[in-house]
Amino acid sequence: MIRRHIFMSAAAATVMLSSCNGGGDASPTPTPTPTGTATPTPTPTGSPTYAAFPLAAAAEFFTLNASTSYTGDPATSAVTLGVAGTESFSDRVRLATSNAPTTGTYVFREATEETRFAAVAPTTPSAAANTEFVFRSDSTTTAGQFSQLEFLNNVVPGSVTSDALLGSLTRVSYGTWFRGDSTAGAKRLTYGVFGYGTVASDLPTTGTQAYTARVTGRVVRSAAGATAVNRIGGTVTVSVNFSTGLVDLVFNLTQTTAGGVTSAYANFAAQGARPVGQFQFNGSFTSGAPLSGTFTGAFFGSAGAEIGITFAGSSATDRLVGNVVGKKP
């Protein structure tokens, strides 16, 4: 208010002096020429930074997951198949992993159920020759009760798998939890993908991108009075259209028996979409697939450099669950 008062007083004085000066002889004060104001240069926004595997310390992660179950003894008869389904990121299924397999703590938790291995040497070690390291415990009091954790071997420093693709993944990983209550009781399979998700604003907005990917999983088949629980392998072609959000998958799956015999399992396609502003996507198996099923996935690392997907499928005789992980070529 003080400054405004002085300014008004000075203006009034100028008017009075001009009037007393006789009017027409006064030289008007020139109007200053406006000086252009430069447009400020925007400060560049830095790209997000992401943590990386192998781990520097123990860490806990939420997961994308796929799960199924069955009840009965697959070694002696047909089993009763449960539901198979997928779930986007949530804290309902989460895991803890470590950078020190023999001294660290490894946990898989689904709702209130948990398996924990603390300071226990894995049954399959973290070593360059192994794509996964595995923990397993078998009950000494309840026949057929067991729990098994399987982790992609890219989280432990100094012993990352030598597999060219899997060993190069630094933003995404996976884990599997297989457990059983008893010989004839319920068995449950949970596959989970985890890692350092891409910030949605860091994803491309145009173009189509292929990903080089690897698949792992299990299929439970119960038919003609017999049951088989086989490992799933093979290839998955992944293509993402960042302009439209469409995600296309082509599965060419194999199955391997407990005896090590590998054969073709199923070939089918799936399609989904990424909602605007999200780093996750979901979809379903397309018509003509031998199973009905769903998948859910997400992008990991800078600009969606890596990808992780879980999938689950059902037919009259089969329950299929698994993970897909990959990266841009």
Results as ranks from 00 to 15, higher is better:
273 A>L: 13
257 T>N: 10
191 Y>R: 13
306 E>L: 11
242 F>L: 10
205 T>Y: 06
262 T>F: 15
188 R>A: 15
306 E>Y: 12
257 T>Q: 04
299 F>M: 03
190 T>Q: 14
251 F>N: 02
276 V>S: 09
191 Y>D: 04
211 Y>R: 01
278 Q>M: 09
255 Q>S: 13
203 L>I: 00
272 G>W: 13
283 G>A: 05
271 Q>T: 15
206 T>N: 09
247 V>Q: 06
243 S>V: 05
245 G>A: 04
213 A>W: 00
199 V>A: 15
306 E>T: 08
284 S>Y: 02
316 A>F: 09
188 R>S: 14
225 G>T: 13
260 G>H: 06
270 A>D: 00
260 G>W: 08
280 Q>K: 05
233 G>K: 09
308 G>Q: 00
304 G>R: 04
198 T>N: 11
292 S>V: 14
285 F>C: 11
286 T>D: 02
299 F>S: 07
309 I>H: 09
271 Q>M: 07
224 A>P: 01
313 G>Y: 10
257 T>V: 11
276 V>L: 11
253 L>H: 05
309 I>N: 00
220 V>D: 03
189 L>N: 07
272 G>P: 10
188 R>C: 03
275 P>G: 04
298 A>Y: 12
265 Y>K: 13
186 A>L: 15
280 Q>V: 13
271 Q>N: 13
317 T>P: 01
302 S>D: 01
226 A>D: 02
279 F>H: 15
258 A>R: 11
212 T>P: 03
213 A>K: 05
313 G>W: 06
224 A>W: 01
234 G>F: 05
298 A>I: 06
314 S>A: 12
259 G>C: 00
251 F>Y: 10
292 S>T: 15
246 L>R: 14
195 G>K: 03
266 A>G: 08
293 G>Y: 10
282 N>A: 14
257 T>R: 08
241 N>H: 00
209 Q>A: 08
288 G>F: 10
264 A>E: 14
194 F>C: 10
240 V>G: 08
251 F>W: 10
277 G>R: 08
275 P>L: 04
250 V>W: 07
202 D>F: 04
197 G>K: 14
276 V>K: 14
270 A>L: 14
280 Q>H: 11
270 A>N: 09
254 T>N: 14
268 F>W: 05
234 G>A: 12
268 F>D: 00
245 G>M: 05
192 G>P: 07
218 R>D: 13
261 V>T: 01
239 S>T: 14
247 V>H: 04
202 D>I: 03
247 V>E: 05
289 A>K: 11
212 T>W: 11
195 G>S: 08
255 Q>N: 05
212 T>E: 14
209 Q>G: 03
245 G>P: 09
275 P>T: 00
194 F>V: 06
221 R>H: 12
